[in-house]
Design a protein around this nucleic acid. Structure first.
Lengths: 157, 157
DNA sequence: ACAATGTTTCAATACTATTTGAAACATCGA
DNA sequence: TCGATGTTTCAAATAGTATTGAAACATTGT
């Protein structure tokens, strides 16, 4: 496998993976490109290498910065900005999960909170209460369940 | 909050959550509905309660069974099938992560495998090698990183 | 065999999300 | 201040996904 082939495949795969997990493909591809670059890239570099528009490149670079996955880099004597990815996989994982937690999990947890006090003791009411309770408060709350199970699966089989 | 309100909110929230994670909304909503039902539901029940078509309901019920999140239940004397969700949150988490691993992670890992032997020692080649290696083989492989970090985030702050 | 009941499929359609591209906006140096 | 260079925004176009609904298929009881 040649270098350019490897690059393309990695970008494609990371893009597809991101997309399956609800992260838009361009964002994941820009991230992939920066992850495997040995030096910071400019907006133009990103546009050219991925064949995407300026607007798209700009928007996703900003989003990646917002997620703390990419840093702005200024080269001395250069007017334009360059971008560099965080390459420590541990940090990458941490930043992604922190953002997703903030954006998606918290809304759900908040709702489960509100649902604490549902009236009634019909089988239906009981069932709703039990499920929301299990998801919300049970000792290893379901989010932990999820991730622990995931970790187990990944390291295991 | 009344029971029907709670039901609707839960279904909506679970649907939105699923959607953000790349699971189609209807599938997540059907799952939510079954999670909080105190008894198994028929295809018709699902169609009515969620206002979705027969085709959609059927397709997503099959998908949920395929993910081991829902079981087919036969009531004695009834011709049609009923459906019941797995309610143990631990199992739910395990089944979801197992499926997603199978479907999405393995393709990526396979590619990273292939990328083990990239030629060249230019800075570019080195950078690609390092990243794919880190993602693929480093002791707590990145998947574990991800999930461990996630678990930490969720139980923590 | 056939009517009744229930399930599955899939082409057409509706819907949602992403991407573009061009205009507006900033900043710098002369 | 003005031209050059670089960045941001956002409405419109496009691409991608999900949903419908009706027809085909399957199964059961008589």
């Amino acid at each position: 496998m040649t270098i350019p082939e490897a690059k393309d495949k990695f970008i494609e795969a990371w893009g597809a993976f991101g997309s399956a997990w609800g992260i838009n493909r361009s964002m994941a591809q820009v991230h992939a490109l920066l992850l495997i670059s040995h030096e910071p890239l400019s907006t133009e570099d990103v546009m050219e290498q991925l064949n995407i528009s300026r607007g798209n490149a700009n928007m996703n670079l900003r989003a990646l910065i917002d997620w703390s996955l990419v840093r702005r880099v200024l080269k001395p004597g250069e007017r334009r900005e360059f971008f560099e990815a965080e390459k420590d996989v541990w940090k990458v994982a941490t930043h992604i999960t922190r953002e997703r937690k903030k954006r998606e999990l918290e809304a759900l947890i908040r709702l489960l909170d509100e649902m604490e006090d549902i009236p009634g003791a019909t089988p239906e009411a009981k069932s709703i209460k039990k499920m929301t309770h299990d998801l919300h408060d049970s000792p290893p709350a379901w989010t932990t369940c999820w991730t622990t199970a995931h970790a187990a699966m990944c390291s295991g089989s």
